[in-house]
Design a protein around this nucleic acid. Structure first.
Lengths: 128, 128
DNA sequence: CTAATGCCTGTAGTTACTACAGGGTCAAGA
DNA sequence: TCTTGACCCTGTAGTAACTACAGGCATTAG
């Protein structure tokens, strides 16, 4: 299949596919005689793998490590486990920050009532 | 004070200050005869305002809207309130996504046990 | 006098793409 | 036969929000 079909099948854009190839995340496509990229089902699997990993919040770098692990015959499941545990820690850290943020914002919001700006308590507090 | 002092006082880098000036978020500094930037306490207040807003997760664009509101004499506190409510909605959306992510990752992680990669259930699932 | 700071401008790099510009390819319709 | 439209190609620039130089003055302490 060509890039447009693959893009539709995986629900991403052709630009994204070309980009992943360029940065070496996706193996290069074979070329038709006219220069068009040609893909087989293995490419689709690979791209799906990448997109699913991204959907789980893994960065490009982490996805690269995952694909490397998937390809290395002498790596262990333990390595994958570590990657996931690290990532869960990151996600939890971000969750904590966001919860804190939500609390601060709610406190700020509760101070905000319909008045003229000159007495706006939010601006006052931010300005201190 | 000079840029280094201001940076220390506000706990950010001189580069960040120059950057904020460049994009028009922070009013331009007066220059000493040698070309060095010179700041007064009003600049410090302004920079603090920006940094506090950022700490609350507001984007540059939102911070700009906040500073505009703080400067416009005929705007109402209602406008500020709207900005905050919008932002709270964003934060909550991100919180929801992250929680979902955490759940998926934990499910994945629970499948991961110490085995050789050939049977790694995580890779299998991502590859499908 | 010189070395160490601190300051200046301007550019490039970061992440993960997206959006062109300017061109080639190919099948179907007038 | 010609042209129109839908694809495809490469390469570059833009996004957010900075950070990190490179290359060069200014000032001050020893």
């Amino acid at each position: 299949m060509r890039i447009g079909e693959l893009a539709e099948a995986c629900e991403c854009s052709p630009e994204t596919i070309r980009y992943y190839e360029k940065i070496g995340l996706l193996p290069s496509a074979i070329r038709e005689s006219n220069g068009y990229r040609f893909y087989e089902s293995s490419h689709r699997k690979w791209l799906d793998f990448i997109l699913r990993s991204k959907a789980l919040g893994f960065s490009q770098n982490e996805v690269r490590r995952l694909t490397d692990l998937a390809n290395a015959p002498n790596s262990t499941c333990q390595d994958v486990h570590e990657l996931i545990v690290d990532h869960i820690r990151d996600v939890r850290a971000r969750l904590g920050e966001l919860k804190q943020l939500e609390k601060s914002l709610l406190r700020l919001e509760s101070k905000c009532i319909d008045e003229t700006l000159h007495e706006c308590p939010v601006i006052d507090e931010l300005m201190r």
